[in-house]
Structure formats: C-alpha cells, structure tokens
Simulated scan of single mutants.
Amino acid sequence: MFFKENYHTACLVALRYIKNQQEAEDVVQETFLYLWEKRNQLEIRQSLKQYFLQAVKNKSINFVNRERKFHEVINEELDMTLSSDSDENFSKEELAVLVSKSIDKLPSQCKRIFLMAYVDSLTYNQIAESLGLSKNTIKTQMGIAYKQLREHLKSYFLLLFVYPLKRILR
C-alpha cells in the first residue's frame, strides 16, 4: 500500500536527477526494495514517506554520478587509444582502410557473406537463399568473420565505437 501511494511522487523526485523515465523508475523500485530488506535495521526519525523520498533522491544522485564516471572512463580510454597511436589521431578514413584490409584477409566465402550482411544489409535468410546455403552455414561463416575481425582490429576497439562498422563500410 505504501509503495503504491508514493510511487508516482518518488518517480517525479528521481526524474529531477535522472532524465530517463525507465531508469528513474528502476531507481525508485531499487530504493524501495533496499528499504524493505533493511526495514529491521533502520531508525527512521521522520515520516516514512520523507525518508523514502530522501533515499530516492540520494540513490538518484548516486546513479547520475556513476553514469558520469562511467562516461568519463570511456572517454579517457578513447583519448588514450587515439593519442597512443604513433601517427597521433586516426581519422575515419584511416580506420576504414584498416577495416577494409582486415575484411580482405577473410576467407573468400566468409568475406562474401560478411559483406552481404553489412554492406547490402541482407538478413541471414536472404544470404542463405541467394547463395544456396543453409542459414546455419551463414551463421557459422559470420562467426568466423567476427572472430577474425575482432582479432585483427582489437587495438582499435574503442575507435569502432566512435565510427561504427556500418558507417565505415558505406
């Protein structure tokens, strides 16, 4: 009963800090669950509603701070990857050349299937029909392609977040 009565208000509190409704609702639910699990250990000196809303506010702020730190770490790693390259910064074109060379190293059928999937945007079923192969064969060949490309491009992993593969291949 308490949760139902205060859920909407708690979500509004969370939304002041977290700009995504689903994430705000998750924080409210996690806060309620945490308080329920610790109910025998808590000393509440104010109203339960005030305590709950303050806990939602605190968890929301913690959530935002964790998200901010996560993005800062990703950006730092990306900056280190970009600056650690001997030629300084990689451009999209240079990365495209590396990806293209890696794709060229794939076995011929594997390369053909991979390009049909990524460049032509065909589904596995469409590729299988077009080549007269089974869908499982297509899946296996794509698995081989992914594995080899991961190995060839592992040093440039974070750059692929900046320049997604589909954009590079177009």
Results as ranks from 00 to 15, higher is better:
Asn65Gly: 00
Ser60Lys: 06
Thr137Tyr: 06
Ser86Cys: 04
Gln148Ile: 07
Tyr124Pro: 00
Ile127Lys: 09
Leu53Lys: 13
Tyr146Lys: 15
Val97Lys: 09
Asn58Trp: 00
Lys135Val: 15
Ala145Lys: 07
Phe114Leu: 09
Ser100Pro: 01
Met80Val: 05
Lys49Ile: 02
Glu151Asp: 08
Leu95Ile: 12
Pro107Asp: 12
Ala96Asn: 06
Glu77Thr: 02
Ser60His: 02
Ile61Lys: 05
Glu72Ser: 07
Lys139Trp: 00
Thr140Asp: 05
Lys111Asp: 03
Lys101Arg: 15
Glu72Val: 02
Glu94Thr: 07
Thr81Lys: 01
Leu82Ala: 07
Asp120Met: 08
Lys92Ser: 08
Asn75Asp: 13
Glu76Val: 13
Glu67Pro: 04
Ser130Gln: 15
Ser108Pro: 11
Lys147Thr: 06
Gln141Pro: 00
Leu98Thr: 01
Asn75Phe: 01
Glu94Cys: 02
Val64Asp: 07
Asn58Cys: 02
Ile103Ser: 03
Leu149Tyr: 03
Ile144Ala: 06
His152Phe: 08
Leu106Gln: 03
Lys135Asn: 14
Leu149Trp: 06
Phe70Leu: 11
Glu94Gly: 07
Asn62Asp: 15
Ile144Arg: 14
Lys49Asn: 04
Ser102His: 05
Tyr146Asp: 07
His152Leu: 11
Gln50Asn: 13
Ile74Trp: 04
Gln148Phe: 04
Val97Pro: 00
Ser100His: 10
Glu76Asp: 10
Glu88Val: 06
Asp87Pro: 01
Ile61Trp: 04
Ser91His: 01
Ser121Cys: 12
Ser102Ile: 11
Tyr124Ile: 07
Ile113Gly: 08
Lys92Phe: 00
Ala117Val: 02
Ser121Gln: 15
Ser83Phe: 13
Gln109Met: 10
Met142Ile: 15
Ala117Asp: 08
Thr140Ser: 12
Lys105Phe: 03
Leu133Glu: 09
Leu131Ile: 12
Val99Leu: 14
Leu131Asp: 10
Gln141Phe: 03
Met80Pro: 00
Arg112Ala: 11
Thr137Arg: 11
Val64Leu: 09
Ser84Cys: 08
Val97Thr: 09
Leu115Arg: 03
Val56Leu: 08
Phe70His: 10
Ile138Arg: 07
Leu149Val: 13
Val73Pro: 04
Asp87Arg: 15
Glu94Ala: 11
Glu72Cys: 04
Ile138Ala: 02
Lys92Arg: 11
Val97Trp: 04
Glu94Gln: 14
Lys101Pro: 01
Ala128Asp: 02
Thr123Leu: 06
Met80Ala: 12
Asp87Ser: 13
Gly143Asp: 05
Leu53Cys: 06
Arg66Ile: 03
Ser86Leu: 14
Leu131Ala: 05
Asn136Arg: 11
Ser130Thr: 15
Glu76Ser: 11
Thr81Ser: 08
Asn89Gly: 09
Asp79Val: 09
Ala55Gln: 15
Phe114Cys: 07
Asn62Met: 09
Asn89Pro: 01
Gln126Met: 09
Leu106Trp: 04
Asp79Phe: 00
Glu67Cys: 01
Ser84Phe: 00
Asn89Glu: 13
Ser86Gly: 08
Asp85Gly: 09
Val99Trp: 02
Leu149Asn: 07
Glu88Gln: 14
Ser86Phe: 03
Gln148Gly: 03
Val73Glu: 11
Met116Thr: 04
Ser130Ile: 03
Tyr118Met: 12
